[in-house]
């Protein structure tokens, strides 16, 4: 029981199936077809800068909307009776068990011509195509990743010591003040992990934009998938860039979280 030996099979596994594959991405990113060192792949991937920017923008927008919807919901849940709370938590998690392609396909059914939402919009006298634009992509992302925002915020809010709230009330704080001085600051760690859990998969996802967006709405994940079929080197360069952007984002968010924890 004091031995490190049981981890040896996994250490070998990690070397072969985690470290070497990533090293290969780096290798292909910095070489050309014949294996010579070059930075040409990175130069070529600059062509996709606007796709990168658009993906990050869509991810940012989706994350913000998720936060706007999830925060009040988490707050309401944390104030509810335990039994109600459990039911709502269950209901929020249930759609996550459905494959994401099916969830996106469900929105295609709703938004397509003569789909239910399309018909409802027509009844309101509006005639706009709902499918095939950036708005539909953001909607799909919010639908897909909303639970990842609700769950961490909710679990942090549940842990807030009610005596702190009571103490603030005893000291004369009104509802708004209790919220801004106690509940909100203490819920920040949940917000941070929620942002990370929504932003990372949204920025790097593929397929969602293909189903819900138009031809101009492709995201970086779609580009990577597409390019790898033709050019491993440029594909690797873009993957490496994506990986580094995500890593930097996670490090910044973690730092931010640690500082918050240190203050609290």
């Amino acid at each position: 029981m004091k031995s490190k030996a049981p981890s040896i099979p996994y250490l070998i596994w990690m070397l072969v199936f985690t470290i070497i594959p990533l090293a290969m991405v780096v290798y292909y990113a910095f070489t050309d077809r014949s294996g010579n060192f070059t930075l040409q792949s990175f130069a070529d991937s600059l062509f996709y800068t606007d796709v990168f920017v658009r993906s990050l923008w869509i991810a940012l927008l989706s994350t913000a909307i998720c936060l706007l919807i999830a925060y009040p919901l988490s707050y309401i849940m944390s104030r509810a009776k335990a039994s109600t709370r459990n039911v709502i938590t269950m209901l929020i998690m249930l759609p996550m068990w459905m494959n994401f392609i099916l969830r996106i396909y469900a929105w295609v059914l709703l938004l397509q011509n003569d789909g239910l939402v399309d018909l409802a919009v027509h009844l309101l006298g509006l005639d706009v195509p709902l499918l095939g634009n950036a708005g539909a992509v953001v909607l799909g992302m919010v639908y897909n990743f909303l639970p990842f925002m609700v769950l961490p915020i909710h679990s942090v809010m549940l842990k807030i010591d009610n005596r702190l709230v009571e103490a603030a009330q005893d000291l004369g704080a009104g509802k708004a003040k209790v919220f801004s001085k106690v509940i909100f600051p203490l819920s920040i760690p949940g917000i941070i992990s929620g942002i990370t859990m929504v932003f990372v998969p949204t920025a790097s996802t593929f397929l969602v934009a293909q189903y819900l967006g138009g031809t101009g709405d492709k995201m970086i994940g779609d580009v990577i998938e597409n390019i790898f079929q033709r050019d491993k080197n440029v594909g690797s360069a873009i993957s490496l860039a994506l990986m580094i952007i995500i890593l930097v984002f996670i490090i910044i968010m973690n730092k931010f979280g640690d500082e918050e924890a240190a203050v609290a």
């Binding site: 199936f17 985690t18 070497i20 594959p21 990533l22 290969m24 991405v25 292909y28 990372v200 998969p201 920025a203 790097s204 996802t205 593929f206 994940g221 990577i224 998938e225 790898f228 491993k232 594909g235 690797s236 993957s239 994506l242 990986m243 995500i246 890593l247 996670i250």
Partner: peptide, 18 residues
């Protein structure tokens, strides 16, 4: 933890290369 943190698509293509 790399496979958890890394974007899924990058993990996917890295396996494909290997």
């Amino acid at each position: 933890n790399i496979p958890i943190i890394n974007p899924e698509i990058v993990t996917g293509v890295s396996f494909m290369l290997l």
